[in-house]
Write a protein that binds this DNA or RNA. Structure first.
Length: 500
DNA sequence: GCTCCTTTGAAGTAG
DNA sequence: CTACTTCAAAGGAGC
């Protein structure tokens, strides 16, 4: 179904996005997955500490009132269990425990570490980059859009009685991969998942060995180990109201809060804990590209010895465009399932719920300087530069356009850092030039070669989106201005280059 | 310690 | 309906 350019077919994707970079000839390098770098080791090391530290936080337990009540049998349980848990942490470090079971059978216990070669398991670290299980895994193998550290902890966590989940209607020890069984779907809110979706029988979301947040799937995860879901952290920050722990639910400020939990495993004064736990945030489901990034990031890091995410993401963006439709389709499909599952877990959730939580300050700043035309973004727009790839020389990584500030009254045309004019987008950061052998065709402004675009556009079309059987979101009535319109109808993506 | 950068896609907002 | 904005991940850089 070649949809590109057909207008009608390119429903959920912007047509333009496919035009941005078309590094052709760039083939997915079959990179030897052998890079277990020192960095990994370092991460693992630190994770050893973090894991034991980060698994017992009773703080998060407060998120769920019921959980709070239970957990508030104060930290007694926690403290009593701490030694056990620490021991658990050590157990986690037994590679054999995870390694053997490759992904095939993983479902929810075996977590391939995307950042380890061969999808080997990394039970050691709770540091996301090390544990996220997408690397080396077949894209259709449930990617883990969310990290799952706390589940891995929880998998053995003795902090709470095993029956806690039962009380919450989660504990279904006898179930294995029967997802519907594990998914106490929100009452009345959940439509059926179409049979075509494989995630019921297929472990869609493998559990990373260690992680703070958890893929929803873990909630489904079977009997793999339900005790894992009894982890206090889960009860607090990652527990769905139905009792389903979900990686998408994180403390309101997300990462930082998670780090906070990791660093503050000691019981804390009640008020503070409650305060933090009051605002769990359900994160957005990851889109196809995000899933791809999660899987490939480690590769790029290993190949380029890069660490800066911005540069890595640039590379990944190019590689994404270089993917064949077929390959992309895998991720679109995963993303679709991801969204569907998310929708089922959180029927009433809206992306709008998270608006303002991440960039509140930024937006506040923008409001303050709303009329300031010197921002790089505005400068780019004003002069027809691509918001994503162009920059106004000194504007790059600057908050203000230097030329504007210098009194020219406007942002200059693209200039290099030394002020000389440039006609084309500036050279990529050094990082982008890394490992030419690894990215042979990775060049800026690589000529588009639509050859592989002959394949059908993998991007989802409305028909593929959650069927009408899906839950109608409360609060998202038809009159809602932002109600999901047919993305297909809006090929003009926000990425549409301002002037390209 | 917070924010930015950087990517694409999904979804929300505004006109 | 269109255009724009925000957020999702990630981690180094910069303030």
């Amino acid at each position: 179904m070649p949809q590109l350019g057909s207008g009608g077919g390119d429903d959920l994707g912007a047509t333009d996005e496919m035009l941005a970079f078309k590094d052709e000839g760039e083939q997915e390098e079959k990179i030897p997955e052998n890079a277990f770098t020192e960095r990994d080791l370092a991460d693992l090391k630190s994770s050893l500490v973090n894991e034991s530290e980060g698994s017992g936080s009773p703080a998060a337990a407060a998120a769920d009132p019921e959980a709070l009540r239970r957990v508030q049998d104060p930290q007694r349980v926690y403290q009593e269990k701490l030694p056990d848990h620490m021991d658990d942490g050590m157990k986690h470090q037994d590679p054999g425990m995870y390694k053997g079971s490759a992904y095939s059978g993983y479902p929810f216990l075996m977590l391939s570490d995307p950042y380890l070669p061969n999808g080997s398991m990394s039970p050691l670290s709770n540091k996301v980059p090390v544990v996220q299980p997408s690397h080396g895994v077949h894209p259709l193998t449930p990617l883990i859009p969310y990290s799952n550290d706390h589940f891995s902890h929880g998998s053995h966590s003795p902090h709470l009685p095993a029956d806690i989940n039962q009380k919450q209607g989660v504990h279904r020890p006898s179930q294995t991969s029967d997802i519907p069984g594990f998914y106490p779907l929100p009452p009345g809110g959940v439509g059926q998942i179409t049979p075509s979706m494989g995630w019921q029988s297929q472990s869609v979301y493998p559990l990373p060995s260690c992680g703070f947040r958890q893929p929803y799937s873990s909630a489904l995860s079977a009997g793999a180990s339900f005790s894992r879901f009894t982890h206090p952290l889960m009860l607090g920050s990652g527990m769905h109201t139905t009792g389903i722990p979900h990686p998408a639910i994180v403390p309101h400020s997300g990462k930082q809060d998670m780090e906070h939990y990791d660093r503050n495993m000691k019981p804390q004064p009640e008020p503070k804990r409650e305060k933090e736990a009051k605002k769990p945030t359900i994160k957005k489901p990851l889109n196809a590209f995000m899933l791809y990034m999660k899987e490939m990031r480690a590769k790029v890091i290993a190949e380029c010895t890069l660490k800066e995410s911005a540069a890595i993401n640039q590379i990944l963006g190019r590689r994404w465009h270089a993917l064949s439709r077929e390959e992309q389709a895998k991720y679109y499909e995963l993303a679709r399932k991801e969204r569907q599952l998310h929708m089922q877990l959180y029927p009433g959730w809206s992306a709008r719920d998270n608006y303002g939580k991440k960039k509140r300050r930024t937006r506040e700043k923008q409001q303050d300087s709303n009329s300031d035309p010197a921002s790089p973004k505005k400068c780019r727009a004003r002069f027809g530069l691509n918001q994503q790839t162009d920059w106004c020389g000194p504007c790059r990584r600057k908050k203000k356009c230097i030329r504007y500030l210098q009194g020219e009254g406007r942002c200059a045309s693209p200039v290099s850092s030394d002020g000389s004019a440039i006609d084309s987008p500036p050279s990529p950061p050094d990082a982008l030039r890394c490992l030419p052998s690894a990215f042979p065709s990775e060049q800026l402004a690589a000529p588009a070669d639509p050859a592989h675009r002959d394949q059908p556009d993998p991007r989802p079309v409305p028909a593929q989106l959650p069927p009408a059987s899906g839950p109608s979101r409360p609060g998202s009535g038809p009159s809602r201005p932002g109600s999901r319109r047919s993305a297909a109808a809006s090929p003009a993506h926000s990425r549409a280059p301002a002037g390209t």
